[in-house]
Simulated assay, not measured.
Amino acid sequence: MNQPTTNETRLFTELRKLSPKVTGGLLRMRQEAYRDAAVAAKYKLLTAMAISIAIRCEPCIRAYVQMACDKGATQDELIEFLEVAMTMQGCPGEEWALKAYAAYKGSIRGEQSASSAQCCAH
């Protein structure tokens, strides 16, 4: 998914004001789901990354890699989750896992892209 245009951002903001309970629900779900609890947040985020690979959502892949790194995920942990994603999908999984690995390499170099700030730009 591409970065939202100024108009899309303005429309989303307007819709969120008109429907705050539903439109803001995804953000609230993410805050709750990806918190540290019985399972550390970084593992939940790595799981979300693996699912993003499976559904082939590149903005989500970049966002979850960045968030997992921000929560302290190591390269070894990331690689193991990439291995799971590749195992589940075969050749397409490898192609999309490469996108996640590239995002990781960018993250450790401090190259956080604007599109990695939020999954699907919302």
Rank of each mutant, 00 (worst) to 15 (best):
L27Q: 15
L27S: 12
R28T: 08
R28E: 12
R28V: 07
M29C: 07
Q31S: 13
E32T: 13
E32L: 12
Y34H: 11
R35D: 11
A38R: 11
V39D: 01
V39W: 02
K42Y: 01
Y43F: 15
Y43A: 00
K44Y: 00
L45E: 14
M49T: 09
M49D: 02
A50V: 05
A50K: 08
I51D: 01
S52P: 06
I53Q: 03
I53L: 04
A54N: 09
A54F: 02
A54Q: 12
I55S: 04
R56F: 09
R56H: 13
C57R: 09
C60H: 07
C60A: 10
R62H: 11
A63W: 04
A63H: 15
Q66S: 14
A68K: 04
A68M: 06
C69D: 06
C69K: 10
C69A: 14
C69I: 09
K71F: 02
G72L: 06
A73Q: 07
T74C: 06
T74P: 00
Q75K: 15
E77A: 08
I79P: 01
F81T: 03
F81L: 02
E83K: 14
V84I: 14
A85M: 05
M86Q: 13
Q89T: 05
Q89G: 10
G90C: 03
C91S: 11
P92M: 10
E94W: 10
E95N: 10
W96P: 02
L98C: 08
K99N: 05
A100R: 00
A100F: 00
Y101I: 09
A102Y: 08
Y104V: 01
K105V: 13
G106N: 14
S107V: 08
E111R: 12
E111T: 08
Q112L: 09
A114W: 04
S115M: 14
